[in-house]
Amino acid sequence: MAHTLFVNLPVADLDRSKKFFTELGFSFFGMTDDMASVIISERTQVMLLARPTFATYAKTEVADPNTTTQVILVIGLDNPAEVDEFVDKALAAGASAVGEPITAGGRYQRGFADPDGHQWSALCLVNPAG
């Protein structure tokens, strides 16, 4: 049975976040004044919630993504060129680079932090021999 995954992220400035994800080429579903749903794929969406709205759903204090890491969101792509294109687009749209590219273990992966500090990676599985 296939399920849909909704990942919820608190954001400080919803308009800035919508602009950032639009510049990465994503579209949205279900935008309101305090939340917007970024369509990652047919069965995956990232819900951007204004921090006060996010806090109403959270059981504990909302973490500051600039000082703690609770999750790393990974976008799977088809090849290293797509990884580079995606991360370069994110950096041009206001993200900051995180770490060095990883080329070991049959993968190519690069990381970045979005304007709110949430950590993301772009990943493709490659042939370990080449």
Rank of each mutant, 00 (worst) to 15 (best):
T4H: 15
L123M: 13
D84V: 02
K19W: 05
R43S: 14
A55E: 12
D64S: 06
N127G: 02
E82L: 11
T103P: 00
A50R: 13
F112S: 05
G117S: 02
A36R: 11
E85Y: 01
L73M: 10
A81D: 13
N8F: 07
T4S: 10
G117R: 10
T69S: 08
V74E: 12
D33G: 14
S37I: 03
E42L: 08
G117D: 08
D13W: 04
E23F: 03
G106A: 03
P101L: 04
T67D: 10
K18V: 15
T22G: 15
F20T: 04
T53G: 02
V11D: 07
D78P: 02
A129Q: 09
L9T: 00
Q70D: 13
L48A: 09
M47S: 01
L123I: 11
I72M: 13
R43H: 11
P80K: 01
V126L: 03
D13I: 05
P65Y: 04
A92C: 00
D116M: 08
Q109M: 08
A113Y: 00
A93I: 03
A129F: 15
A63E: 12
Y57T: 08
F28H: 07
L49G: 01
Q109F: 00
G30T: 04
E82D: 15
T56P: 02
K89Q: 12
D88Q: 12
K59V: 14
Y108P: 01
N127V: 02
A95C: 05
M31P: 07
F21L: 04
G117F: 08
K19L: 14
A90Y: 05
F112T: 00
K89L: 04
N79D: 15
F26V: 09
A63G: 06
D33N: 14
A90N: 08
E42C: 02
A36H: 11
L91E: 00
D13K: 11
T44H: 10
Y57R: 10
I75T: 11
V98G: 03
A12I: 02
A55K: 07
F6Y: 13
F54N: 02
V38H: 00
D84N: 10
D64I: 07
G94M: 05
T68A: 12
K59M: 12
T32N: 12
G99K: 04
K89M: 04
